[in-house]
Simulated scan of single mutants.
Amino acid sequence: MPAPRDPAASMALLTELVRDDAAEEYAEAARRHRGARPARTTRVAFVLTCAAVAGVLALAVVQRQAVAPEAEKARQVLVDRVARTQEEIAALEADIARTRADLAAAQEVLLAQSDEGAALAERIGSLEAATGYTAVQGPGLVVVLDSADGTDPAATDDPGRVLDTDVQNAVNALWASGAEAIAVNGVRLTSTTAIRSAGAAILVDFRPLLPPYRVEAIGDGAALAVAFPRTTSGNELDDVVQQFGVKLSFEQATSLTLPASTALLPVRARVPSLGADTVAGSSASAGADPDAGTSKEAGS
């Protein structure tokens, strides 16, 4: 006969099951509680970091506002100084032009007194025109360079901006095409003229110029227009136009007037050697040694 079942044993098993489930729930709750602490700590650290960054930015803004008036004042001082210097340069250039006009008038009167003087005056006039010493007038070609559309004129790395090398190529192409005289934005070029850049500005004869750059050349306008793209410099400039969108235009002119150069022109030039007979005759009449040097330095 089987032994009777003990009711207490069945209840003990049920109690054990309930106790295990409750323990598991308590353990899970404890784990969640421990995991929540780092999250709150991270949020607090993030808030503190944002507050610190905001404080630094606010301090920088306050300092900038405090320094801005001084920076603007210094900038205005430089602007005023540049303006005064430009006025002084303009006055000096006007004085140079008046002095040159007086000298030319006196020279014309003196040289007109003999046939030799008239021939010499003609030669001097040709040399003065070629060296940029006097203004010249005649037909020619106008080449205009301008930056591509949408170009930032203050950005030195913008590929669409006209560079000093572009102006140089335009000038060299015109010289190679047979130009007799050239000016860029009214600045007459000579053998000593430099075309270079300074930041975003292009300097011609140390004068800052702004686009568009108008390059005027005296000569046969039609011949210059035909020869320009065939030169090496003209080809290089055309590549810039095709690649970066720099604007290039040509215009033939029936009459152009290029001013005299205000640059410091060379003050000494070498006189070509004279023939032996001429040297001997001149030396004999002057009572000098006919074997003296065949060339001399002459101040201009």
Rank of each mutant, 00 (worst) to 15 (best):
Leu209Gly: 00
Val241Asn: 03
Ala222Trp: 05
Pro272Phe: 03
Ser273Tyr: 09
Val109Asp: 13
Gly160Met: 02
Tyr133Trp: 10
Val79Ala: 11
Asp146Glu: 04
Leu141Gly: 00
Ala222Thr: 07
Ala288Trp: 09
Gln113Trp: 10
Thr262Tyr: 03
Leu92Asp: 09
Tyr26Met: 14
Thr41Asp: 15
Ala200Asn: 05
Gln243Leu: 11
Leu265Val: 02
Ser233Gly: 04
Glu16Cys: 14
Ser283Val: 03
Glu116Asn: 14
Leu256Gln: 01
Val82Tyr: 12
Ala54Tyr: 07
Leu48Gly: 09
Thr165Asn: 06
Met1Gly: 12
Lys296Glu: 15
Ala119Phe: 12
Val171Tyr: 00
Leu110Gly: 09
Glu180Phe: 03
Pro139Ala: 04
Leu92Phe: 08
Ser255Ile: 06
Ser126Ile: 14
Ala154Trp: 13
Pro272Gln: 04
Val77Asp: 10
Leu210Arg: 13
Ala60His: 13
Val143Met: 01
Gly281Ala: 15
Tyr26Gln: 15
Thr294Tyr: 08
Tyr213Arg: 01
Ile218Ser: 00
Glu236Ala: 11
Leu189Gly: 00
Glu128His: 08
Arg64Ile: 13
Pro139Ile: 01
Ile89His: 06
Gln107Phe: 08
Val171Arg: 00
Met1Glu: 13
Val44His: 15
Ala52Trp: 06
Ala105Ser: 11
Gly160Lys: 01
Arg98Ala: 10
Thr192Ile: 11
Glu236Thr: 08
Ser261Tyr: 01
Ala198Asp: 14
Met1His: 13
Ala68Ile: 07
Ala173His: 00
Met11Phe: 15
Leu127Met: 12
Leu14His: 11
Ser10Leu: 15
Pro266Arg: 02
Gln107Leu: 13
Gly132Lys: 00
Thr262Val: 08
Ala292His: 14
Arg207Asp: 07
Gln242Pro: 04
Ala148Lys: 02
Val241Leu: 05
Pro139His: 02
Ala74Gly: 07
Ala9His: 10
Pro212Asp: 02
Ala71Gln: 12
Thr41Asn: 15
Ala9Ser: 14
Ala288Lys: 09
Gln243His: 09
Arg37Ser: 15
Ala154Ile: 10
Ala298Thr: 09
Thr85Met: 15
Ala36Trp: 08
Gln243Lys: 11
Ser10Arg: 15
Thr156Asp: 09
Glu70Gly: 10
Ala223Met: 06
Ser282Leu: 13
Arg268Asp: 10
Met11His: 15
Pro153Leu: 02
Thr294Met: 10
Glu236Cys: 08
Gln137Ile: 06
Pro7Ala: 04
Glu87His: 12
Ala91Phe: 07
Ala194Asp: 15
Asp6Leu: 05
Ala8Ile: 11
Val143Cys: 01
Ala71Asn: 10
Gly199Ala: 05
Pro290Lys: 04
Val279Ala: 06
Val226Pro: 04
Ala118Glu: 13
Val53Gly: 07
Gly160Arg: 01
Val67Pro: 05
Arg64Glu: 14
Leu264His: 12
Arg100Trp: 05
Glu251Met: 05
Asp6Phe: 03
Leu78Pro: 05
Ala119His: 12
Val82Phe: 14
Arg230Asp: 08
Pro2Tyr: 09
Ala269Phe: 10
Ala105Met: 09
Phe228Met: 01
Val56Glu: 12
